[in-house]
């Protein structure tokens, strides 16, 4: 965390205040997975065991639920009508999911393993050994972005600003309240710029360096969506709720 006591813009503090408690989200998702496991055990030998990919889908699905819950709790977001809220989330859900994963790895700080939201650690070697070519490329691409953000020493407050910049994307079409979304985006950009200048005065280009990483995140999320779509079409995605609904929403 940046040095305490430095003047942090009020908006950034508000963003941090609205952040969900990581341990609470972790326990909710872990409880869901335990419930899944018990359900499977009760069905005995007949039940097909959940594959690693299947487990990842459940984790992504549950993480998506927590992301929607986070968005709902944001003061700015509440000002929007549900129609606009849905358009914004349909536009950026995969970027927020990938950012959640990437930011966890940035602070996990290990090169050879990844940390899941459940707190489990998976050796990269074993993950890549099981993964097909496409998933392996995705994981490697993710690790490259993690490395760039580690070098930048991206901090938690900057990550929350990223989330708002991604959610309040002024390029989303057919919004009823386009001007409001644009204004929030401008305010968040301003707050992040002010934050970087206050807290990292020796790095005047930090703001632009941070923003340069967002297109990489978008590319990764588009690749992740394509991969998920491919797996879904081949019947390999076990759960059929929020993850698949959001996938369809973007593609119809």
């Amino acid at each position: 965390a940046p040095p305490a006591g430095l003047p942090v813009p009020a908006l950034v503090l508000e963003f941090v205040r609205c952040e969900q408690d990581e341990l609470h989200v972790r326990s909710k998702i872990s409880a869901h997975l335990e419930h899944l496991q018990q359900d499977q055990n009760s069905r005995g030998a007949k039940a097909e065991p959940l594959s690693t990919f299947g487990l990842m889908c459940h984790i992504a699905d549950q993480t998506l639920f927590s992301i929607v819950e986070w968005a709902r709790s944001c003061t700015f977001f509440k000002e929007l009508k549900v129609g606009d809220q849905m358009k914004l989330l349909h536009n950026c859900w995969s970027e927020l999911l990938v950012l959640d994963y990437i930011s966890r790895q940035v602070h996990h700080g290990k090169q050879d393993s990844i940390l899941l939201i459940t707190g489990q650690e998976i050796e990269l070697v074993s993950l890549l050994a099981q993964a097909g070519v496409t998933l392996a490329d995705l994981v490697r691409g993710g690790q490259e972005l993690v490395q760039h953000l580690r070098e930048l020493q991206l901090d938690h407050r900057e990550i929350t600003c990223f989330k708002y910049l991604i959610l309040f994307n002024p390029d989303v079409k057919l919004l009823e309240n386009q001007a409001y979304v644009e204004s929030v985006y401008e305010q968040v950009s301003g707050a992040l710029l002010e934050y970087t200048l206050c807290v990292y005065p020796q790095h005047l280009e930090r703001f632009s360096q941070l923003l340069l990483r967002l297109p990489e995140l978008k590319t990764l999320s588009a690749q992740a969506e394509d991969y998920l779509c491919y797996k879904h079409l081949s019947g390999e995605v076990p759960c059929n709720n929020l993850l698949i609904e959001m996938l369809h929403a973007k593609r119809t």
């Binding site: 639920f65 929607v68 819950e69 709902r72 549900v82 809220q85 849905m86 989330l89 349909h90 709720n241 929020l242 609904e245 959001m246 369809h248 929403a249 119809t252």
Partner: peptide, 18 residues
């Protein structure tokens, strides 16, 4: 189309006091 996005709409519309 409306039916397709039922879950997200439910999540965004649901009343927290329920």
């Amino acid at each position: 189309k409306k039916k397709d996005n039922a879950l997200l709409r439910y999540l965004l519309d649901k009343d927290d006091n329920m």
